[in-house]
Design a protein around this nucleic acid. Structure first.
Length: 293
DNA sequence: AACCTTCCCTGATGGC
DNA sequence: TGCCATCAGGGAAGGT
């Protein structure tokens, strides 16, 4: 599932390929994921140039000058670049490493939006479960209104201990739940929440009001650390996630607890367990992440 | 405010 | 081309 590291990896891969490019045409697939009327999307996007590609939490935002095109990838969303001059899944000549297999894929029944440039290359939005969304905003202030509920952005100047502690103390919820709350820290999803809690050695069902400053500080440090690791490794590909070239990330091999129920804890060897917290599968080490009682 | 349930959606999986 | 139930989950919505 695309969380901050996956969306950031897509952004970095896509940016050099789309910046400065002019949209020639768009092709609409299933309109259910398009939160703006397809006719307006098509009419508004044609002729626009892509000035920048930004990210806020798990949202990817195309800056089109005045307009903003927002993608949220939901559970299974993919945003890839496709060059029709290259065979899908075939071999391409890589500038430094020689021949390399192309992972780009042709549009299929799950491709809901294709943004074509003048030379025939395109950005494809594909989403099997259709939990993703595409929204067009006419101006930046409309986008900001849409994003106003989001919390601190990791790696930005907003992400400071004072705010983290203040917000954490204000709320009275399970620590796993607050990590998943996009109004607290933007961009953390189920995988990185479990990883951060393991890193901080906190039981996912600990209540926020019961955390000591030292414990909260561990969490404050762990969140950007696990996210950064995810970015460095190109994201976590458990099932559907691929980057803008259609390539899988490698952070799935480095996960400490997520999806590892029944396996030994990498820190102490005790068996990792899986419980449900807030309707979400939650993985932790019962020895390293004790619930004080 | 916190907490719970339901909904959206498809593909993988396992039982029979 | 077997059929059906279950599960995965981000986020919005609605209820308690």
């Amino acid at each position: 599932m695309p969380e901050l590291p996956e969306v950031e990896t897509i952004r970095r891969g896509l940016l050099p390929k789309v910046r400065g490019r002019t949209i020639a045409d768009v092709v609409i697939g299933d309109r259910k994921v398009l939160k703006s009327p397809p006719e307006r999307l098509a009419a508004s996007l044609a002729g626009r140039s892509i000035v920048d590609l930004r990210r806020r939490g798990k949202n990817l935002i195309f800056d089109l000058g005045r307009q903003r095109l927002l993608f949220h990838l939901g559970m299974t969303g993919q945003l890839t670049f496709r060059d029709p001059g290259i065979e899908d899944g075939g071999f391409v000549r890589h500038p430094t490493t020689g021949l390399q297999r192309s992972r780009q894929h042709a549009p299929d029944k799950h491709t809901h939006l294709q943004i074509f440039f003048e030379d025939g290359t395109a950005v494809l939005f594909r989403d099997i479960r259709k939990f993703g969304k595409v929204v067009l905003f006419e101006a930046d202030e409309d986008l900001l209104r849409h994003l106003q509920g989001l919390g601190m952005e990791p790696f930005s100047e907003d992400f400071v201990w004072k705010s983290f502690w203040k917000e954490l103390s204000r709320r009275r919820v399970k620590v796993k739940s607050i990590l998943l709350d996009q109004g607290f820290v933007a961009g953390v999803g189920n995988i990185y929440a479990d990883e951060a809690l393991f890193e901080a050695r906190l039981h996912p069902e600990r209540k926020t009001e019961g955390l000591s400053r030292a414990e909260a500080k561990r969490l404050f440090a762990a969140v950007p650390r696990v996210l950064q690791k995810g970015i460095v490794l190109g994201g976590t590909s458990l099932r559907d996630y691929v980057d803008s070239d259609g390539e899988k990330g490698s952070n799935q091999d480095e996960l400490r607890v997520y999806g590892r129920a029944g396996e030994p804890c990498p820190r102490c060897g005790k068996t990792i367990v899986r419980i449900v917290v807030g309707q979400r599968g939650t993985h932790f080490c019962p020895r390293c992440q004790k619930k004080p009682g």
